[in-house]
Amino acid sequence: MDEIPRQALKGRGAISNLTSRYERETRVLADDGWGENEALTETVPTQVFDDTARSVLSKNTSPDVIFERSVNPYRGCEHACIYCFARPTHAYLGLSPGLDFETKIFRKARAAELLAAELRAKSYRCQPLALGANTDPYQPIEREQRITRAVLEVCRDFNQPVMIITKSALVLRDLDILAPMAAKGLVNVALSVTTLDRDLARRMEPRASTPARRLAAMRELTAAGVPVAVLASPMIPGLSDHELEAILTAAAEAGATQANYILLRLPLEIADLFEEWLREHAPNRADRVLSLIRQCREGNLYQSQFGSRMKGSGPVAELLSKRFKLACRRLGLNARDAALNCADFKPPPARGDQLTMF
């Protein structure tokens, strides 16, 4: 049978359902003689499944990030960002990091309940939690599922500080929780802005909020007293890195006081998925982009070493780092301490607890 070439699907980032690294066989779309060589062009619907995890607190041991504990209400992400470093985790479930990752979403329906139990444990020591460090807590299905909101309600009740990472304006829905928490120094929100080009964003992160809506969300959060950071991530050499200063400037004007960036990461299956996407959506730039990425990764498309995996190495990466630092200095970003308040953490009384006299 002849293999049928995959085509980009409306509202999806990945072009193919690339076989994961754990599979023995490789799956391809083939013509069995009945399809008249028609390519797959229909919309792939999103399916939601239950995740039966017994814990929602994930521990991070990487020295490259500022948090040790995180909560992820969902596995998989409907935003469908082609570059998402979480894609390979779907292979653990026997699914593809390609289309499966963005169409087969696993919800942690008991996330709030499990989090409350873990925060009450005598062994727990308060530290900021990252909400959405792996997949976006405000992806489209959160509008109905409301799991992220329930998690935030627990954090509010416990005075548990939380760092939210998202690229969705849906975060504004929860301002009634976030604003009072911010007044106590318990929350900040980091909005990821990869590009200001709406057309590029639509192709690269098709179901995320538009760049303009993310900047508008920064303004509303700032007006409500919620500290805001901008993540110019990922920076893609030869495709979006020229926008670094413009992104930081727009975010600072919208109220952001903190900033960071990450150089494009292409671990495991993401390298093939990204190259496939690049040759479909930016064929004239593909070879140049891949060459620049290799120049930042010592000849490879990715390096996993701590200390360099986020920023890369070599002249191209060093120039990007210098540009970032100069822009932040000019715009006054990262000039203030953004530490969250852990001193007021206290589990609220639970049903059946003995009342205290003081």
Results as ranks from 00 to 15, higher is better:
residue 176 D to Y: 06
residue 267 P to G: 13
residue 38 E to K: 14
residue 251 A to W: 14
residue 327 A to S: 15
residue 247 I to L: 07
residue 316 V to E: 15
residue 170 L to R: 07
residue 116 A to K: 01
residue 68 E to W: 07
residue 202 R to S: 09
residue 99 L to W: 01
residue 45 P to Y: 08
residue 7 Q to A: 03
residue 40 L to W: 09
residue 191 L to H: 07
residue 21 R to M: 09
residue 336 R to Y: 04
residue 239 L to W: 00
residue 325 K to C: 01
residue 154 V to Q: 08
residue 303 Q to D: 13
residue 71 V to L: 08
residue 10 K to Q: 12
residue 256 A to F: 07
residue 105 I to R: 02
residue 164 I to A: 04
residue 151 V to C: 13
residue 228 V to K: 11
residue 249 T to D: 11
residue 195 T to Y: 06
residue 313 S to R: 15
residue 338 A to V: 05
residue 100 D to G: 06
residue 274 F to T: 10
residue 203 R to C: 00
residue 125 R to Y: 00
residue 270 I to F: 09
residue 188 N to G: 08
residue 248 L to P: 10
residue 177 I to Y: 06
residue 72 N to G: 11
residue 208 A to N: 03
residue 136 D to M: 00
residue 353 D to S: 14
residue 141 I to M: 09
residue 117 A to E: 10
residue 204 M to T: 04
residue 122 K to S: 05
residue 303 Q to E: 11
residue 76 G to I: 01
residue 44 V to N: 06
residue 324 F to H: 10
residue 174 D to V: 04
residue 7 Q to C: 02
residue 209 S to V: 05
residue 22 Y to E: 00
residue 193 V to T: 13
residue 12 R to M: 07
residue 13 G to N: 10
residue 321 S to I: 00
residue 84 C to V: 05
residue 249 T to I: 01
residue 242 H to S: 12
residue 173 R to N: 09
residue 61 T to F: 15
residue 202 R to H: 10
residue 235 M to K: 01
residue 358 F to N: 09
residue 120 R to K: 04
residue 207 R to F: 12
residue 110 R to A: 15
residue 113 E to V: 08
residue 141 I to L: 12
residue 165 I to K: 15
residue 113 E to M: 03
residue 230 V to Y: 14
residue 279 R to D: 03
residue 259 A to H: 08
residue 243 E to S: 07
residue 94 G to H: 08
residue 256 A to G: 11
residue 78 E to I: 02
residue 69 R to F: 11
residue 210 T to M: 08
residue 350 A to I: 03
residue 88 P to T: 10
residue 291 S to Q: 15
residue 335 A to C: 07
residue 319 L to E: 15
residue 230 V to M: 12
residue 259 A to T: 05
residue 209 S to H: 07
residue 142 E to F: 02
residue 27 R to F: 13
residue 235 M to L: 15
residue 182 A to W: 09
residue 262 I to C: 03
residue 102 E to S: 11
residue 301 L to H: 13
residue 347 P to N: 04
residue 84 C to R: 10
residue 315 P to D: 12
residue 267 P to H: 11
residue 7 Q to P: 01
residue 6 R to G: 04
residue 257 T to H: 02
residue 74 Y to F: 11
residue 205 E to F: 02
residue 89 T to F: 11
residue 154 V to I: 13
residue 16 S to P: 06
residue 131 L to E: 13
residue 109 A to Q: 10
residue 14 A to K: 03
residue 6 R to C: 05
residue 236 I to W: 10
residue 95 L to D: 06
residue 168 S to M: 07
residue 226 V to M: 05
residue 74 Y to K: 02
residue 243 E to V: 03
residue 68 E to Y: 09
residue 265 R to D: 07
residue 80 A to K: 08
residue 317 A to Q: 12
residue 23 E to T: 09
residue 316 V to G: 14
residue 2 D to H: 00
residue 347 P to Y: 00
residue 177 I to C: 06
residue 268 L to Y: 14
residue 76 G to D: 04
residue 26 T to P: 03
